[in-house]
Design a protein around this nucleic acid. Structure first.
Lengths: 150, 150
DNA sequence: TTAAGTGCAAAAGCTTTGCGGGTAG
DNA sequence: CTACCCGCAAAGCTTTTGCACTTAA
């Protein structure tokens, strides 16, 4: 993520904390900073690894709690994926995903026509929609090549 | 799932096994049968629980392996979700999801206008699309009520 | 001051694997 | 016969939790 966008996001986080009366800790700032630099869809453990390179003092539990907290206030989001470990996403604006059902990889795509899809009314279900993603499910290049040459 | 659709799916599985030379075991048939009866998005453990009620002899490892195998041949699919345990979905036809980012629940919806969305060409990326889902992300009724009354 | 966050270590939850034996085709 | 599958038990990976201590506001 570029320097400017990143700074804007960090400022947004400061604002959200102030608004909600949440203390802004050094550790959470490191976690946020690291996640904004990772532009794929890291697991908590991958974030921990990157955090550890910058500041080995931050504990595993803190990284897990920080990610949950950052997602809760909305400065990052959780990615939807077919795998077994939670994945986080620093991109909060509308975009879409290619999802490999073999290796669980998630690849970002942008497509204006997908952005324009008609969002159904879900108010009758009591469900409040904040956002949407289109997931194109299938098989990525690597997994296809692996299957073709057994 | 109604009796007829279910039988068709079981027949489809028999056919796929025959085509691919895979042995068709009693245990996998039980797992498939059970998953087709569950119309939400069960975790492997929830499937195991249901399998155990029908046949306590089937082991945990077998359920995990069977689910993976059933998904691989395509008679069931993996659901994309924000949580930490793999979820399976007996619905293989096009449909869409409400995803609660608080409790990770996935609710099925159908919507013809979403079904008709323009699928982008991903061949340049080497990605083969087999399927798509729209995920409407947000907060479900229960979680909203919990937040409003703290 | 006080509500919230942190580190640690242990527990809990989810999934895979190695292996000896069994079975469908 | 020969892949492939099964059950078991152990290991491995991922996440949460209780508690004593610290810190932002």
């Amino acid at each position: 993520m570029n320097r400017q966008t990143k700074q804007a996001r960090i400022d947004e986080y400061r604002r959200l904390c102030r608004e909600q009366g949440l203390p802004l800790t050094e550790q959470r700032m490191v976690v946020l900073d690291v996640v904004l630099d990772l532009d794929d869809h890291p697991t908590a453990d991958q974030v921990l690894e990157a955090v550890a390179r910058r500041d080995p003092g931050v504990s595993r539990a803190t990284v897990y709690r920080a990610l949950e907290s950052l997602a809760r206030v909305g400065v990052i989001t959780k990615a939807c994926h077919p795998g077994k470990a939670v994945r986080y996403d620093s991109r909060t604006e509308t975009h879409h995903h290619l999802v490999c059902l073999r290796c669980d990889e998630v690849i970002d795509i942008t497509d204006e026509r997908l952005d324009a899809l008609p969002v159904p009314d879900t108010s009758a279900l009591g469900f409040e929609v904040s956002d949407f993603r289109v997931q194109l499910r299938g098989t990525c290049r690597r997994c296809r090549e692996l299957e073709e040459t057994p």
